[in-house]
Design a protein around this nucleic acid. Sequence first.
DNA 1: TAATATTACGAAAACGATTTCGGACACGGA
DNA 2: TCCGTGTCCGAAATCGTTTTCGTAATATTA
Lengths: 333, 333
Amino acid sequence: MVTLKQISQICGLSVSTVSKAMNGQPDVNPATAERIRQVARDLGYRPNAAARSLKTKRSYLIGVLFADQINHEYFANVLNSIRNTATDLGYDIMFISDRVGSSKMSFYSHSAYRNCDGVIIMEARFEDPDVVELAASDLPIVVLDHVFSGCVSVMTDNVESMVEIIHFVVSRGHRKIAFIHGQENGFITQKRIAGFYKGCMELGIRTPEEYIVSGKYHDPEASAEATEMLLSLPEPPTCIIYPDDYSYLGGLRIFEKHGLSVPDDISAVGFDGINLSIHLRPQLATYRQDAHMIGKQAVIKLIEQIEGPMKKHEEQVIVKGSLQPGNSVRRIG
Amino acid sequence: MVTLKQISQICGLSVSTVSKAMNGQPDVNPATAERIRQVARDLGYRPNAAARSLKTKRSYLIGVLFADQINHEYFANVLNSIRNTATDLGYDIMFISDRVGSSKMSFYSHSAYRNCDGVIIMEARFEDPDVVELAASDLPIVVLDHVFSGCVSVMTDNVESMVEIIHFVVSRGHRKIAFIHGQENGFITQKRIAGFYKGCMELGIRTPEEYIVSGKYHDPEASAEATEMLLSLPEPPTCIIYPDDYSYLGGLRIFEKHGLSVPDDISAVGFDGINLSIHLRPQLATYRQDAHMIGKQAVIKLIEQIEGPMKKHEEQVIVKGSLQPGNSVRRIG
DNA sequence: TAATATTACGAAAACGATTTCGGACACGGA
DNA sequence: TCCGTGTCCGAAATCGTTTTCGTAATATTA
């Protein structure tokens, strides 16, 4: 491993000067600096992150908290965007877990242990005390799909997106619209349910209780069950809105079992706008979340807190998505 | 930040002793050690990874090389397993990129800069000189889905898995079997093509050239094109094997366009065994790669090289998958 | 009892970088 | 000539650990 010391010896200079040259400090003769850098290149020098981090208290590491849904295409896309943006800005990312080996370690401890400059909470059990501790800590934080007081959060406009969906479905002539939503206690679920009601209200649609049923995100099984239930209603809906694109597959299965085809016999809408929705036939109507922008904003807002003048603060960043009409909502009436 | 020094002052002991107590070294009185640990707990002490890594040359950090397919469910599952296993064994994982900020940095340099103890090459352009450099370096490496001389690699048995698929399809009475394969130059593609031929040979099936066409992994568009071509043949196949489950969606689209339904009019097989294949109707016949075991083995084999007596070496670990019959292959004849 | 072994602890160096502060020197203006 | 100013460089401290080696006190053995 090549160190500054070796370079300094070869150049006949002090370590201080070499360090300054490598960091582009002004108080070193340009000619000298160039000579130093040349030697450094020749020797294949690269700084040691640990030493640098130890001294400067900056690791250029962003922690990412990811409970499990890593196989969710939407989250994968966000993660990818986070990674790319972080790299662009000179940061690396690592996963934060709540243990190391067999011993428990809080998320915050873990982040501190690794000297993370900040943490992005992507997907987690937000009521977990460890997550709360992390959010409330002095570490710069950005949360996705949730709001913690004192933290920056980034998400799609979950109310308006649902309103848009309702407007779209109603514009196609539907009046009997059902909504299978994700986990009841979820922050974004609440928003979307609110959006559903708001859309109905704006358009004067009266929706019976039975049309709003509980499902789960990213879980076709749960959607299948809910769909079965909806279809068994004395007056079944003409259109069903699913928690997300992926879980729509569960509904699709039930439609086929009942000999119903989309969109002729039943209409459906998803959420997320993952590629799957495009490759299905008919293409699924959905609300496309801008995963790329969400990931990018998350990193930018985090680094803003790390490097910028305004430290940790509360802010809500809304990233606009877009309705994808697809071909799964029939025009009726 | 609580340091060993602070603890040592409170306990009236030296930093050395405190350090040794925290690390369970034998040359410290058990009672003293317990007292030290108690104080450490009370103060909320946690070691500083940077300082430790600087001194010990061990970071307990595993680098993961991931070019882009992060939204591929199979890779996501492998990554998840890697993460969990690494955490179990006391390691954290971080992504390795080939630049930092705007300046280019080879994968190897990046890994060295971050003091990674080892790197898992999950998905990459294997012919990239930077990837080759990394593989050939002194760093412990585990490669997935590829073989580099001198490195451990972990993968499914791509030959036998295809043979199994052929046997299965033939046992259902098919003789006209087409194979849309992934990128020609790929290592695993070659294996699978070999497996295809081997299976046909064993069963005395003669497959015309036109039945073997080039597609792409995880790309429904490419599969759609290839499917269109196959269906236009004077004598179209009765069963098509796709590069993977996801790209099967492209074929499905073409089937529907032609008014063909699976499996009555045409049979199909995927690869990977991702959840999607289960949620489709009919369920897709596929070969399920054991993503969990592959990720687990990758980490175990890597740590073996890092900590164990046998350093970097060449080895090929084959993880067995399993054929999932699904309902997409019709019984004929 | 004397010699030796063991136990428990500390001093200090080291890991590789950054940063503060001061000094040497050259230069310009008065 | 003298002084102030600016440029360029180095000494040394420091970040938080680990680890080697030495030593004093105690225990064991002959």
